[in-house]
Write a protein that binds this DNA or RNA. Structure first.
Lengths: 123, 123, 123, 123
DNA sequence: GTGGTCTAGACCACC
DNA sequence: GTGGTCTAGACCACA
């Protein structure tokens, strides 16, 4: 996954979201060590302070654990991760349903379009 | 629906999208007269030229018809509108599926979460 | 012939051209009486003032003669009409040849495209 | 070719046509870089925005490709250009034939007038 | 008052 | 320097 930063929201908040996603999707596995703040900052072409702030907020959320002299690690608390993962999913679903409802799609329509498009995308 | 303009994309393109939505969702019904360019511009706190540009592009798409000196009208070609509506829906579904897949949800998971959340939202 | 008015040029000038054409093509025969300005205006869905302006310019050209209390007539001077007809034709040919030459078509190409398209249009 | 702008049609539309012609006639060869928007605007004594609008519409048509920060280029898709060239030619022929037919010229007349006038123009 | 066009001048991101 | 976007303000034709 890339480090796409848009200019319409605070950068640190977008970083938080992106890293959260990387954790929930397993790109940063349970208990694994994260790259250093500096490396992450370079990777995302972002000021280290900004990256630091994003990581700190993820620590507050309990997704990261910092081990002062060694580095930062993804939590090993799988239930915490599942919880965040579900929360993210629910946000996506909520926005999605709002959009589709506004377009006049009902439950049946939605499920059928999804099934149809999943088929297409697998091809 | 509000005129939320973000700063990360051309304004005229966001306007195009918003108005397209208003048409597809029936907020601007088939064949109805739109407010004048100047009024719409005021409503959206935007320069009339920018609004004009958005409307012109919707005209090219066949969603609007302009009647010089009288005003602009939503097309009466319902099939054209349905076509656009479906295209919008497909875009939403596509993004949604990408997001959910990245989080590790499969078809079954997705459908069940949707059903569940729709129940909640109805309550 | 219909009263096709486009919106990209002054209406009165299009009217002038159309009426000139109607005269040269015999739709308004030599010496015949034209409908009244009002009727012509209705027929063309145009403001009477605009039609008046067109007719006046044709009078200047010697194609129409107005007989104050009786109405307007097509000139009886057949040589004048032939002259105008040929002039119109030559203008069309001149412009056409310039256009085609600029596009890189030579005499042979031009004649062959014409023959081809005439066939299509007859079908 | 000169930048003759008449006042009876939108300038941007005339610019579009002129540039299209320059491309189809080879004045702007395949794949070549166009002058910058500002330079073209100066050349045509026109506001840069107006020129921009014309170029954008040619881009939509697939005749131009823009390369941000580098410049605009004529497409290298020769078939696209041929297609447009033929379309232009057919439009000219169609209008021409309609005009001549309405004036009472038949196929033979037309071909003979063309041959005659081509001779004159060569002299 | 309507849509449509045009200009002048400004700012942005990019390289 | 490039293309792209936006604003402010003006004028036109039309009904």
């Amino acid at each position: 996954m890339t480090w796409e930063i848009k200019s319409d929201r605070p950068i640190y908040s977008q970083l938080t979201e992106l890293i959260k996603l990387k954790i929930c999707s397993g790109e940063y596995p349970l208990g694994s060590k994260l790259p250093s703040v500096r490396d992450l900052a370079k990777e995302a072409s972002v000021n280290p302070n900004t990256m630091q702030r994003a990581l700190a907020s993820l620590e507050e959320e309990g997704l990261l654990v910092s081990n002062r002299t060694v580095g930062r690690f993804v939590t090993e608390d799988i239930s915490r991760i599942k919880q965040v993962r579900n929360q993210l999913a629910r946000e996506h679903v909520k926005i999605f349903l709002e959009n589709m409802t506004r377009l006049g799609f009902d439950h049946e329509d939605i499920v059928s379009v999804i099934s149809e498009m999943e088929k297409e995308m697998r091809e």
